[in-house]
Design a binder for these strands. Structure first.
Lengths: 250, 250
DNA sequence: TTGCTTATGAACGATTATGATTGATTGTGG
DNA sequence: CCACAATCAATCATAATCGTTCATAAGCAA
């Protein structure tokens, strides 16, 4: 039985019965326990299911909200991949800043059981972080209705209360010459301040942001490590001279 | 049977019958008493049910639901009446502080078209305020998971950025001698600070809070005008000596 | 063929869920 | 009030499941 066939079979069975047991899959597919286990791990990484002790269940069954599996997010798969890699950079006990945004949002499921302190300026992120049982501080300040991000002088001064080990920023464009940019100057200011309070800064972006230039400049390339899902050879060459680039291949 | 399956089964049964006995669960699931007991402990911990001697029951309506029309809030009618009156005290252009809580939450629908600036420390309130198109500031700080209220030193210092015309506080008890009280000292500190930054302070409470004393004192009675839905003659007499009381009759 | 990557299965110690046992606690019926 | 039965929390040993590692097998390009 081919790997893809097995994956499809597992998902179909899961859809029918809501839950599957590993032993049950071993018997019906004829594959070894190790293989089934690997399948489940893979499928969990792409958020197709959620593992539990002894088997797997449909995701979002117990706690999660729809927003996390919201398929309307562009480049969701890529963002999840980026987020998973980013999460691997976090140490136990770190204090981290999570920028408001859809990419940083995907980091949250990977933060479980990590003993962290998280600070964010994103309203949507607070709730999700809370469901994961993570100690969460919100910066507060003026709320931007459309995006649920907190911005402005109060947000900035609230940030001064904290220091971060790591800071994860979502960005709208990166360019060798113009650096990291985003449409809203208010948000740019928040990102700037958060970064300046962190030991390390990571900019998360999918490939569609390459060589894009938005209105407000956040910082030069060398002030943050860039994490992207994919990038052309030439573009990469131009970037490598300026900063560290981590490409998270599929 | 998978752990999650058992949990789901228990909750489904509980939803149907309102109560479940441990012995009944042992027989129908085939699991041992120890396991069922552990299940109930887990589910109680995540507030899905409430344990009683010999089994479990549906949890009381302790949780604050974000929905305005949610009838599960105790004394909803009364709270709405209180909220409506409270809203009549607001002037065009006022800056107001809205405490986290179910009573203050009911104020929000009455704030439409009032040209206000609202500051709150309640997560659930921000979203509702935003839907009404009201300029909203959140204090930020550490989030209290169960209630969605922000508390702690960061919240307090964030408050210092603002000045209010009016401050609306939810309280858990009022008493002629012991003043206004609430269970959580952290929340009490926030209410205290908010009040001290306001020209006028109003304490909102339904009749069940009369002569109740909670753990943490917020302030003496005379520091705020009390708004209640109904109150006994004798109690009112005792209060009138200390502060202004507004009774919002049906 | 060789060299390389990928998928698989088996084996290991570590982790987690479970079931039985104990003695303490609580409710019930005299 | 007491005695008895049911229920409880805590503990322990066992069984199931877990992630990891390693060796083998299969696919594929040079």
């Amino acid at each position: 039985m081919l790997t893809n066939e097995r994956h499809a079979y597992i998902l179909r069975l899961l859809d029918e019965k809501q839950t599957v047991k590993i032993q049950e899959l071993v018997e019906t597919t004829g594959a070894s326990e190790s293989t089934i286990r690997r399948d489940l791990t893979d499928l969990e990484h792409s958020r197709k299911l959620e593992r539990v002790f002894g088997g797997a269940i449909l995701p979002g069954q117990n706690l999660m909200e729809p927003s996390i599996s919201d398929k309307s997010t562009q480049f969701l798969e890529e963002k999840i991949r980026i987020a998973e890699f980013a999460s691997s950079l976090i140490q136990q006990g770190d204090s981290i800043f999570l920028d408001a945004g859809t990419t940083t949002f995907q980091l949250i499921p990977f933060l479980k059981d990590k003993d962290l302190v998280v600070v964010t300026n994103g309203l949507t992120l607070v709730e999700a972080l809370n469901e994961q049982g993570i100690t969460t501080y919100l910066t507060g300040g003026l709320m931007k209705p459309r995006t649920g991000a907190f911005v402005g002088s109060h947000t900035i001064s609230a940030l001064r209360n904290y220091r971060f080990d790591i800071c994860f920023l979502g960005i709208n464009g990166f360019h060798p010459e113009y650096g990291y940019t985003t449409p809203d100057p208010e948000e740019a200011a928040v990102k700037q301040m958060a970064s300046s309070l962190s030991r390390k800064t990571f900019a998360l972006a999918d490939h569609s942001k390459a060589n894009k230039i938005s209105f407000a400049k956040i910082m030069d390339l060398d002030r943050a490590t860039l994490i992207v899902d994919e990038i052309s050879k030439e573009a990469n060459a131009g970037l490598q001279k300026k900063t560290i680039v981590k490409v998270v291949a599929p």
